[in-house]
């Protein structure tokens, strides 16, 4: 396993732990799940980037992992579910704003679209005008 792959794997493991903490906020379970479903594969995909590892990247990822390991408040964990993938992407020199590339046989536009899920709205009660 390359250094880059090791760093991405460690970041993905830490991200799963962060998501476990975040999903204890019951009203935000769906949002936490959606964020995790989107970003976790993108973090894992950082392992495959062809570019050389930037200077300081390994230390940066480990420090970022240490930072999120300190979080005990699940609400703060939700904030970091969006932030952490971008911090790791900046360190490793990649992008987490798009999903990982799909194999030619699994093109996204070939897939059957899933029906939209109903929005049962409970998160909005707590989050009224949350800054």
């Amino acid at each position: 396993m390359t250094e880059r792959a090791e760093a991405a794997a460690r970041a993905a493991l830490a991200y799963r732990a962060l998501a476990d903490l975040a999903e204890t906020v019951e009203d935000e379970w769906q949002y936490v799940t959606d964020l995790t479903d989107a970003y976790l594969p993108s973090i894992e995909a950082l392992a495959g980037a062809a570019a050389p590892l930037p200077a300081g990247a390994m230390d940066a990822v480990d420090e970022a992992i240490d930072e999120i390991a300190l979080i005990t408040d699940p609400h703060k964990a939700i904030d970091w579910l969006s932030t952490f993938p971008h911090v790791v992407a900046i360190a490793l020199g990649g992008d987490v704003d798009e999903g990982p590339e799909t194999a030619p046989t699994e093109r996204a536009d070939d897939a059957e679209p899933e029906p939209p899920e109903p929005d049962d709205d409970p998160p909005f009660k707590l989050l009224r005008f949350h800054r």
Binding site: P54, A55, G56, A60, E63, E67, I90, A91
Partner: peptide, 21 residues
């Protein structure tokens, strides 16, 4: 959003902004 407030930690997390990239 962070837990830690020591600047050197954040410089290590963002090396491309602080002298290594």
């Amino acid at each position: 959003n962070g837990e830690r407030t020591e600047p050197e930690i954040w410089r290590r997390i963002f090396p491309s902004l602080f002298g290594e990239g």
